[in-house]
Design a protein around this nucleic acid. Structure first.
Length: 289
DNA sequence: ATAGGCGCCTGCTGGC
DNA sequence: TGCCAGCAGGCGCCTA
């Protein structure tokens, strides 16, 4: 295991592959450790950290780390669950306690004898940390928000049903966490390119074959991104100090004006579902084919 | 049901 | 050189 995990100052855009990478890298550094002290900054995150939670988590051991969509789930003793969302700029790391604390560090958990710390840093504070007393409360919370299935568990039938019964465009569908959990702006664009589908196409206008092409493309793009440890646009994510490499594989995202890797047509950039959207006007036709 | 807009928040960039 | 508008966007909320 690498001995240090330095934090970087730049930002990242954590979607499913980045969150998965964080979970994988933190798991061996966190599972089995006991939280011995908690320190919260004065500035609130999206979900303010309650001082009562300090007492609740102190003394508990970390049992397991998992991921659901873009949510990081830290299971503690007696089924208590600490759930973290990285928002836009969140970073979760385990470091030696002596490591200088960077600005915008909002939560610090001392581990074991205080030689190491779990730190949550978030420049824009779009992230959150929430404590659930048991698994049922957590499940209820996910349920209430309507969080959709994991991309790798989406069946062909579910997907075609969901797409067939909505008048929304494909980009909006992919960004909707209730349809499928974990896809954000980058992987939505990359998946639509992979599937050769125009982001503005109406979901209900797709033939089942086209819809399924998108389902498979999402899985494929996410899987490859996870293999590359996610994307580091201006930085990297995670606890091991290794950069993600998937940003080198982007075929449309952030490449407006660049030649399409398939046909050399300049990549277009439009605004869709309130997000900047990148696509190839030739490979991704707006009408069915 | 769905689109669109806003607010949250900070840091960077480009135009003048 | 300096200033400031614009932009980045996940999510929850609001209105039309």
């Amino acid at each position: 295991m690498p001995s240090t995990s330095e934090e970087k100052t730049e930002e990242n855009v954590p979607e499913l592959p980045e969150v998965e990478t964080v979970v994988r890298e933190l798991r061996p550094r966190l599972v089995g450790r006991r939280i011995t002290r908690v320190e919260a900054s004065a500035l609130p995150l999206r979900q303010p950290w309650s001082s009562a939670w300090n007492r609740a988590v102190t003394g508990r051991r970390v049992r397991e780390l998992s991921r659901r969509g873009k949510w990081i789930i830290i299971q503690l003793d007696r089924a208590m669950h600490l759930v973290i969302h990285l928002g836009m700029t969140g970073q979760l790391t385990v470091v030696a306690a002596r490591t200088p604390r960077l600005p915008h560090t909002h939560l610090v958990f001392d581990l074991d004898r205080g030689t190491r710390q779990l730190r949550f840093r978030d420049v824009r504070r779009f992230g959150s940390a929430t404590l659930y007393p048991n698994a049922a409360e957590l499940a209820h919370s996910f349920d209430e928000s309507g969080l959709g299935p994991e991309p790798f568990a989406v069946s062909s039938k579910y997907w075609c049903d969901r797409l067939g019964t909505t008048k929304r465009c494909l980009k909006a569908i992919l960004l909707d966490q209730r349809v499928v959990a974990g896809v954000g702006n980058i992987y939505a664009d990359e998946s639509l390119f992979e599937a050769e589908l125009h982001p503005a196409r109406l979901a209900s206008d797709l033939a089942d074959l086209e819809a399924d092409r998108l389902r498979v493309a999402v899985k494929s793009v996410l899987r490859q991104a996870i293999e590359q440890r996610g994307s580091s646009i201006r930085n990297y994510v995670g606890g091991s100090g290794l950069k993600g490499r998937y940003q080198d594989e982007f075929r449309v995202y952030g490449r407006a004006g660049d030649p399409c890797p398939c046909c050399r047509t300049p990549i277009a950039r439009i605004r869709l579902a309130g997000r900047s959207t990148h696509y190839c006007p030739k490979c991704q036709r707006s009408s069915s084919k």
